[in-house]
Design a protein around this nucleic acid. Structure first.
Length: 510
DNA sequence: TTCCGACAGTGGGGTCGCAAT
DNA sequence: ATTGCGACCCCACTATCGGAA
């Protein structure tokens, strides 16, 4: 058969995604992805690895549902778009900015859609909006890259965690095998994927599980930062490895003044009040624009050191990494205790809360820095609050929740006897059985409905767990819940027994 | 055989920049 | 000047697969 010189067709990638989505078996998904990767020419590896793990090589390109939904197009009958053509179009769309940009983007996308089949357009819509839903993202793709290159998974995973870039990792795996993968080292100036924490039931649980051989540190309600210093150059990155150096000059200046020549720190940053207490998260966040609110200074709190003066510390135990941090930046180290007894740990937790912080982290002193992993070596402990709230309505779910009433509207009781006052929504904590129950039960309490929501009479009371309350312009009471999740329904209670808006307000930080 | 780590999915509140209105 | 969209901060939780114990 005659083979076009222009490489793999986009339709083959779409077919692979369809196969991946058609099975729940992770092994079968890996097999389908592996097969697709082995068909690629070198230049196609980066875009295809990105697409089949739900991303674009170019990153987010400013296209969402509202931009894309109503672009008219008659589907093509026969696939013709190639991988390289599509990659070029994405690059072109990403490069458009300035006045008239929306129209020019729509023009390019309309041309593209006119050349794609219905299946291809469906895949593109999901890919461009970041909502692929094929049951495989970076984790499954990591396994598939290893399988396609006939390599063990571990070096592929490590190269990805250290480079932060899966497409580049795939290229290295295919071109240079294990040698090329192990050449990805911690490089000062290039961020690694941050180590993450698991939730703990209680401080005692976490302390006991790690055998008391722990560092117990304040957990702050700010933004994660990874700070790289190489000589005079300082670069700062967020949790998702986005560079924010230009937005945080006070942090850059502070790090440039530390007594070292090169270093990589992991930490948290937040804004403080005049009396040194943490400001609400919302106010810290207002500093992450380019030129905003410069009068609100950010403070760094470092809790790890991954490199110091030419020495990589990623694989060193936490205790050594904390020693390094103590040597170079003791005044910016997060408040923490090394190997406290259980009473000391409990006191540190109380102190953290009294100072207005979220809770504590409990970390194994012997564990290495497991970049990109969410393991038991780091555990977070936060106090829980609960409220009994009235269900005011529920929204129809998406994806696997299609056809179920899912996202709850929650109200607090008006102590003056008026209608309940909405304070937030939640979809968390719901089991499949509870989703089914809601879908069966809620219509019996229906007051009205629209396309998205069934509104209820205020009959049902649900116990909600939450991390806290914040001021809000979204809801009529001026309050909103943080991280609300369903614990259980309270059939023993009526709306008259629900918590009042005053009880919700009492959870605001003082 | 059971347990558990890792993953993907389903969305929450809030802030910014930017372009359109 | 205001509004709407998209990106990105923070995040909890359940279901599932498949390897570990």
């Amino acid at each position: 058969m005659f083979r076009l010189p222009s490489g793999v067709l986009f339709s083959q990638i779409v077919a692979t995604s369809r196969d991946v989505g058609a099975t729940r078996s992770r092994k079968v998904k890996v097999g389908a992805l592996r097969e697709a990767l082995t068909q690629l020419e070198p230049a196609e590896v980066e875009p295809v690895v990105a697409w089949l793990s739900g991303e674009l090589r170019q990153g987010r390109i400013g296209i969402g549902w509202r931009t894309i939904a109503d672009i008219p197009a008659t589907p093509a009958d026969v696939p013709s778009v190639t991988v390289s053509e599509l990659d070029g179009t994405v690059t072109a769309v990403a490069g458009i900015s300035g006045s008239g940009s929306a129209a020019r983007r729509r023009e390019l996308l309309a041309d593209l859609f006119a050349r794609t089949t219905a299946d291809e357009r469906d895949f593109l819509l999901r890919l461009l909006t970041g909502d692929l839903r094929q049951g495989a993202l970076e984790g499954v793709m990591t396994d598939a890259i290893a399988a396609a290159a006939d390599l063990p998974v571990e070096p592929v995973r490590r190269a990805f965690m250290l480079s932060g870039r899966l497409p580049a990792t795939a290229v290295a795996a295919f071109d240079g095998g294990v040698d090329a993968l192990t050449a990805f080292r911690l490089e000062v100036g290039r961020p690694v994927r941050p180590m993450l924490a698991s939730p703990a039931e209680s401080l005692t649980d976490a302390w006991t599980e790690l055998g008391g051989d722990v560092s117990v540190e304040y957990k702050l309600d700010g933004a994660r930062i990874q700070v790289h210093r190489n000589g005079d150059e300082v670069r700062i990155f967020t949790r998702t490895l986005r560079e924010i150096t230009g937005s945080v000059p006070e942090l850059v200046e502070l790090v440039a003044g530390l007594p070292c020549t090169s270093a990589v720190f992991d930490g948290e940053t937040l804004a403080l009040t005049d009396s040194g207490r943490p400001r609400p998260f919302q106010e810290t966040m207002s500093r992450f624009g380019a030129e905003s609110a410069r009068d609100l200074l950010l403070h760094p709190y470092f809790f790890d050191c991954l490199h110091l003066d030419g020495v990589d510390l990623l694989d060193a135990p936490l205790e050594q990494r904390l020693d390094a941090l103590e040597r170079v930046a003791p005044q910016h180290r997060i408040p923490g205790l090394i190997r406290p007894d259980s009473d000391g740990a409990a006191t540190h937790f109380d102190d953290a809360l009294a100072a207005g912080h979220e809770g504590v982290m409990v970390k194994s002193l012997t564990a290495p820095y497991a970049a990109g992993r969410r393991g038991r070596a780091w555990q977070k402990v936060k106090p829980e609050h609960t409220l009994d709230l009235v269900v005011l309505g529920a929204e129809w779910g998406y994806g696997r929740r299609t056809g179920y009433l899912s996202n709850l509207h929650l109200g607090a009781r008006d102590p003056d006897g008026g209608e309940p006052i909405m304070v937030g929504k939640t979809f968390k904590g719901l089991t499949d059985a509870l989703l089914q129950w809601q879908t069966d039960e809620f219509p019996r309490h229906e007051r009205s409905r629209d396309d998205h929501t069934v509104y209820l009479h205020p009959d049902l009371v649900v116990e909600i767990e939450l991390d806290g309350v914040q001021v809000s312009t979204r809801y009529p009471g001026g309050l909103a819940l943080r991280f609300a999740r369903v614990l259980r329904y309270r059939p023993d209670k009526t709306a008259a027994d629900a918590d009042t808006i005053d009880a919700v307000r009492a959870l605001l930080p003082r």
